[in-house]
Design a protein around this nucleic acid. Structure first.
Lengths: 205, 205
DNA sequence: GTCTATAGCCAGATAGAC
DNA sequence: GTCTATCTGGCTATAGAC
């Protein structure tokens, strides 16, 4: 029986350190030396395990995106009502992002830097798509529960309202004169307010 | 009388080229050589006019932000009703961004990279603030025209819905299966749809 | 003001000992 | 597998001719 001590493999230590540095500095701003220091090992090890900076970055990026995709699929593919989807997504997403504040900016920035990444991601099974969401939405509109709205527009509205405060955090803090503490409170309120805002707009009165 | 030929100064040529390259690649990804090539002049000239890469970047950044700020002030400081503010802002902003698609991503990315920039910007007069918007909003809520909502939350919702599709363009294209043409149509629809979406949510029925 | 040439540095990658 | 030392190329910045 082996000791059950917290003994991560070197490979995993590197990946963790790389996540931290890449997410804070981006591909171009990150330095291999800084990643090595953060991992507490030698720079040569990075190349031993991941061959090149580019390949290490891709490993980090895929790992980051694979955290985000299930969040989106949850709203797109479960069977609850549109209203329930919106409420649970908003709450879960903001809770999740509070724990990973660098994540949205990292993904957006790198997707804009290199359009090919998105093609690689789409090859994977489990890449989010709107089909089920659209069917469900049209159904509820037909029933008169919701006002007419296009599925793509509604979906983009939902993720815009949830993601933007994290992307534009410095802007939001500056415009609305918030420090770290009041920004946290601002985001906390959104866990329920954003869903109310959306539902108020689309629900038939 | 001098010839009225299109003869920009070298300094302006450099700034234009730098805008293009910095906005596409970011501070870390941009290369002085590429900027020189885009300007059709020598690399040494960049340093002659702007001293260093950092200073050239700051000139570009300030110039970019000074395009964005008046857009925001328009909604915050004019005297029309909240509903009219939202309708005109949405239309104007999306029209403007269609012509400067790299702008939002550039500003957001660099603000996240270097938090000090926002402090420098706030020193300028004309930096957007919510005071007038908040007063106006509270007034209309009191009158019973609008449902209660906090000014900061509403303002962030408005800019989120307008800016996000440009920030997350690769994501939006991938999720909703759009090419360049259908993405343009999608954005075109938002010029009026986003305002309707917001007003529908906050207007008293 | 504009160019060519080059200094000086720094980062990614590898060779090779252990 | 892990380290130290080093190669190699590319980048910012400047010196100096015109």
């Amino acid at each position: 029986m082996k000791n059950i001590v917290k003994k991560e493999t070197t490979e995993q230590q590197i990946l963790d350190a790389a996540k931290e540095v890449f997410q804070a500095k981006g591909m171009d701003g990150a330095r291999m030396q800084e990643i090595a220091d953060a991992a507490g090992i030698n720079k040569a090890m990075l190349h031993y395990y991941y061959r090149s900076k580019e390949m290490l970055f891709e490993a980090v990026f895929k790992s980051a995106f694979s955290l985000l995709a299930p969040q989106l699929n949850a709203i797109l593919n479960d069977d609850s009502s549109i209203e329930d989807k919106i409420r649970s997504f908003t709450f879960n997403y903001i809770t999740f992002m509070t724990k990973h504040p660098y994540l949205p900016n990292f993904i957006i920035q790198e997707l804009n830097r290199n359009e090919d990444f998105i093609l690689k991601l789409k090859e994977n099974t489990g890449f989010p798509n709107l089909e089920k969401f659209e069917t469900k939405l049209e159904n509820e509109i037909k029933k008169g529960i919701l006002n007419p709205i296009a599925a793509d527009q509604l979906f983009v509205n939902i993720i815009a309202l949830n993601i933007f405060p994290f992307l534009g955090k410095p802007l939001v803090k500056a415009f609305a004169d918030k420090d770290e503490k009041t920004f946290k409170e601002f985001v906390e309120i959104r866990k329920t307010d954003v869903a109310n805002f959306i539902i108020n707009s689309i629900k038939r009165h």
